[in-house]
């Protein structure tokens, strides 16, 4: 579904993403893990064709994210971090706008379907500024689903949510993935989240990919470590210190 080849982004002498190469299969939930500033958001921005890569390439369902950017954008859904939507407009008006931009036919019907799926029908005519953070995220996910995307890119979708809100978003993602076989690319720094819903992960640090594999394989490889957290710190520790002594327990 997603193939990334030597993807790089430089900003005035600073390399934010360095020579990234990996694949994500159809129907997978891929957790892209890394600390703050590791290069996760820059990577996602290139994949949804918000910014151009300095070098390298990426393809979604066989389409290049630079050359075929319009086609690519019609196949993906995206929820950036901390998005507030148009707070003066109602949930419906927001969805109608984004649906029209994605060229959804019979937008109104589609909005009702999505809102029903997300159990948000009763909030349809409420202004977004009256929503809680969790509700806003749900509407954010709804706007990303309107045009039935084949792949969803979510940037820290549970950041700032309470445990209940976090769980409800997690359940929603599993539901979407099960029901439509939508591939999900999830930027996160929460290991618990990855453990609960992801089928494969990639770990990025200082712009470089440290490893990528299915969760099962990773657990096999690092059998001696007790938890995913231990594994993560061990890999990060290797990168930062050249040895695996600092973070491993």
């Amino acid at each position: 579904m997603l193939v990334i080849n030597s993807l790089t982004k430089n900003y005035d002498g600073f390399t934010a993403v360095d020579n990234l190469s990996f694949k994500v299969g159809e129907g997978e939930i891929f957790g892209f893990l890394g600390h703050n500033g590791a290069g996760k958001t820059t990577t996602i921005s290139m994949l949804v064709s918000l910014i151009r890569p300095s070098s390298g390439s990426a393809e979604i369902a066989g389409y290049d994210v630079v050359k075929d950017n319009l086609k690519v954008r019609s196949m993906l859904g995206y929820l950036p971090e901390n998005v507030n939507l148009y707070s003066n407009l109602t949930a419906f008006e927001n969805l109608y706008f984004f649906g029209s931009l994605s060229g959804v036919e019979n937008v109104e019907k589609r909005i009702n379907e999505v809102l029903k799926d997300l159990e948000m029908n009763s909030w349809k005519d409420t202004k977004v500024r009256e929503f809680s953070k969790g509700m806003r995220q749900r509407i954010g996910i709804a706007q990303a689903l309107l045009h039935k995307p084949r792949i969803l890119f979510l940037d820290e979708p549970t950041s700032g949510l309470d445990p209940q809100g976090t769980k409800s978003i997690r359940d929603l993602l599993l539901y979407i993935n099960n029901k439509w076989n939508t591939t999900i690319f999830l930027n996160t720094h929460l290991l618990s989240e990855v453990k609960k819903i992801c089928s494969s992960i990639g770990i990025i640090s200082h712009g470089q990919l440290l490893m990528t594999d299915s969760l099962i394989n990773i657990k096999k490889k690092f059998g001696s470590e007790k938890s995913l957290e231990d594994i993560y710190f061990r890999i990060e520790g290797d990168q930062n210190n050249g040895e695996n002594t600092v973070y491993s327990i």
């Binding site: 921005s45 949804v48 319009l70 954008r73 995206y78 929820l79 998005v83 148009y86 984004f98 931009l101």
Partner: peptide, 15 residues
């Protein structure tokens, strides 16, 4: 930009 909606707009198939 402040509300993050510019990213939503630009990730749509529009020029």
């Amino acid at each position: 930009r402040e509300e993050g909606t510019i990213k939503l707009l630009l990730s749509r198939p529009i020029y």
